[in-house]
Design a protein around this nucleic acid. Structure first.
Lengths: 164, 164
DNA sequence: TATTGTTATACTCTATAACTATA
DNA sequence: TATAGTTATAGAGTATAACAATA
């Protein structure tokens, strides 16, 4: 069923694939990208629900945590770490600046660069986000078991590193 | 330029995080969502490069394979299987119909529903897509090892099933 | 009343390209 | 010339809501 099955589920489904019936995934069953997207969607949704009012626009969560952990990080540094274009970073940072979560300063040594820092309000938000992230982690561990979660993380990191 | 200096980290970053330095990920290092997104981005990009001229709009790849494997599947069925709203499905199907990859027929038993089928041109495209998907799988297996890929797939499926 | 599919619309995230100011 | 950041713009991808046809 792995290959060239353009018509192997055919006769059965030729009439009609009814709701509730098992759908034949074909090559998708072994296609990593398909499952990565579904898993990504699912974890994103459940985390967004958990965050509730603390929710930030998606890219912002990552960027805010990065700034909290790397005070003075430049926008180019953020761009590299989160895999988004500098223009996307600029837009997200301006939003967080307007929200009072971060502040930016020109770097003295190189006045082209700007350094980002969390404000006290931003630090409080980071605290709450991290607490919610711990809850999310606990849920995932409950679903998969801690060992499997660690294995999953390690495998994803290897994939990110090695896939060119 | 792209190497890391090795030491630095938090105390170093307290002043300023310079480009090229290792970035402190903090809680992101163990945050599954962060790594899922990066892995998803990476596999998507490499697969898109591989597809080249055969590339379809992202949602369409999944939907076309589903239709090939489930001839006559309804739009609601596709919607459920790929986790997208029926309006998104309708838009994607119209696009693929315009491209000559699929055709749609009203279902006789329930004239509200429409059944989708791949055209001969669609079937050819599916063949090429599946061939490229096999190449992508081989690359991923080369990067991680076949056993680890299977383990990863199984874990992602478990996560999708169990995370509420 | 409920469901299937369509359409109009809007929103979010993102990148490209052109720009400035520094280096 | 090259780099950091900004801005305007465009484009994917998606969902919401109102709708028509059908059940």
């Amino acid at each position: 069923m792995r290959d060239r099955d353009g018509d192997n589920g055919a006769e059965r489904a030729q009439e009609e694939a009814e709701p509730g019936e098992a759908v034949e995934l074909g090559i998708l069953a072994g296609h990593l990208g398909f499952h990565l997207r579904l898993a990504n969607d699912r974890t994103f949704e459940t985390f967004a629900d958990l965050l509730g009012a603390d929710r930030l626009r998606p890219g912002c969560f990552t960027m805010l945590i990065l700034i909290a952990n790397n005070p003075g990080i430049t926008q180019t540094g953020i761009s590299r770490a989160c895999g988004r274009d500098k223009s996307s970073v600029a837009k997200a940072l301006r939003y967080m600046e307007d929200e009072g979560l971060i502040r930016r300063e020109r770097v003295e040594d190189d006045r082209r660069s700007s350094a980002s820092f969390v404000t006290p309000a931003g630090a409080q938000r980071v605290e709450r986000l991290q607490e919610k992230a711990r809850i999310q982690s606990a849920r995932i561990s409950a679903a998969l078991g801690e060992a499997r979660v660690q294995e999953l993380l390690a495998t994803l990191k290897a994939l990110i590193d090695r896939l060119s």
